[in-house]
Design a protein around this nucleic acid. Structure first.
Lengths: 168, 168
DNA sequence: GTGTCGGTATCGATATGTCGCTATATTAAC
DNA sequence: GTTAATATAGCGACATATCGATACCGACAC
């Protein structure tokens, strides 16, 4: 239910709930400079490198790939074994990256305290397991107990958010 | 969003974590008897009717649809506006359903205490909000506090699972 | 300088598949 | 009748794609 609780912050905190314009394209270019990948791999890589802070959806990645290809910055590598379509950087793409670098746009959008920020995601993933079990197979008593525990935690997290703001 | 968490543990002693053989097909037939649907709608419907207790994945639904079609129980309705492919029951499918009914196989797989079982899903959805906020924008202290809270809850849920087994 | 207009990028939801592993149920063997 | 073999169904992860709503940000007016 709570979709709000939005934090507004200064220009350079880590507070983008949405990537800045062009961030997806720049990220894709940066990653493809390392090695050719497909859309799914790009999503996973971005997710991991940002420590889960940024998880671009397929609705961001695939249109972006299409745009980049149309502009000639990347190309779908038509490999012999056609089952794995991989994108790779073209010369124009490399130039584009250099242009960014020359422009001071050196910081990849996924920069930050990666290690710490991933922790919550991991913890949540672990919580999913038993929650799912109880939700699916649990008795009425178990459901009551579990729901209470989860709601308590929700309150606690809101408290944490309210207590110490994330701004530095 | 790619999810690759290889840690899969937890006490699997309670209940079936997997639908019984043939349940997907029977469910599809039952639902299609009401009205034609596509794969995604079937997934959503099953999820809702079971109160989130059973969320068959695309990996269950689409192969099942293919099987059912091959056996002639359903057919992909080739509508005029071809953008929405919908499956509908054939006469053979209707006979198949009657055969199940005659066999005492009247209980749909999604039967149960729907209302109660949905609660945990709702509670978890609510927990997601602040967890995500802290994970993305939180300070180190906030992350520590939140992670601890979540892990405590995980332990609590495992305790609940261990304490009182489901009604098997 | 501030407001707001509009093009377009981002994103969640919608949609459809495939693959490999594992669980389940039927049947065969003992 | 229990156990072992086998077939096949179920499911999570992988993979791709589109659409509508919304958010971003440059640009132009004021």
């Amino acid at each position: 239910m709570p979709k709000h609780h939005r934090h507004h912050r200064g220009p350079h905190g880590h507070g983008r709930k949405r990537a800045r314009r062009g961030a997806v394209g720049r990220s894709i270019l940066t990653l493809l400079a390392e090695k050719p990948m497909n859309g799914y791999e790009l999503m996973a890589e971005l997710d991991e490198r940002s420590g889960g802070r940024w998880q671009p959806s397929s609705g961001s990645i695939y249109p972006a790939l299409k745009r980049l290809e149309q502009r000639g910055f990347i190309s779908a590598a038509t490999s012999e074994d056609d089952d794995k379509p991989r994108y790779e950087l073209t010369d124009e793409g490399r130039q584009r990256l250099e242009a960014f670098a020359a422009d001071g746009e050196t910081t990849p959008p996924w920069e930050g305290d990666v290690a710490r920020h991933g922790e919550i995601r991991g913890a949540m993933a672990e919580l999913m397991g038993p929650a799912r079990q109880i939700g699916r197979f649990g008795s009425a008593d178990q459901i009551t107990a579990a729901t209470t525990a989860i709601k308590d935690t929700t309150s606690k997290l809101y408290q944490i958010l309210a207590d110490g703001p994330g701004e530095e």
